[in-house]
């Protein structure tokens, strides 16, 4: 029970943060509302459920099957490259346990774009 209240608390903190960001002009290529929507999609079990396998900043009860996601911009040249990994991880690694979110339509193309914005920001 405490978990759900905590989660609620976190969600509203997130909204607050997003609101503040929207007021302050930031030199970022990412649209903050896209980042927030992407975060929600990434964390929700019924959608990305990335936390099942990846530790990601701000996420709780993450699994450890996969590498933690952070400093993405240091490893990915472009958002397109990051998107390719999320859309179908089996292209790079046929043995991967990561679900092919695009190829198997687990997320729509527009949803993946939002998740990319969020992950790119990590």
């Amino acid at each position: 029970m405490t978990i759900s209240t905590k989660l609620l608390g976190m969600a509203s903190a997130g909204v607050l943060l997003a609101g503040q960001l929207a007021l302050v002009p930031v030199a970022s290529a990412s649209d903050p509302s896209m980042v927030e929507e992407g975060k929600a999609l990434a964390f929700t079990r019924k959608k990305g459920n990335c936390l099942a396998c990846h530790i990601m900043a701000g996420g709780k009860a993450a699994g450890n099957i996969a590498p933690p996601l952070g400093a993405m911009q240091s490893r990915y040249k472009s958002k397109a490259e990051l998107k390719a990994q999320i859309a179908d991880a089996t292209v790079k690694n046929p043995e991967t346990s990561m679900p092919p979110f695009g190829r198997h339509k687990i997320l729509s193309d527009a949803e993946i774009d939002k998740v990319v914005e969020f992950v790119w920001s990590l």
């Binding site: 459920n49 936390l51 009860a61 699994g63 099957i65 043995e95 346990s97 679900p99 198997h104 339509k105």
Partner: peptide, 22 residues
């Protein structure tokens, strides 16, 4: 399945790892 798992993905390849808190 849509999530593209074999039994072996979970119980061999990732045995001992956590999927969420499981």
């Amino acid at each position: 399945g849509q999530l593209n798992f074999s039994c072996a993905n979970c119980h061999l390849q990732n045995a001992g790892m956590k999927i969420r808190s499981e």
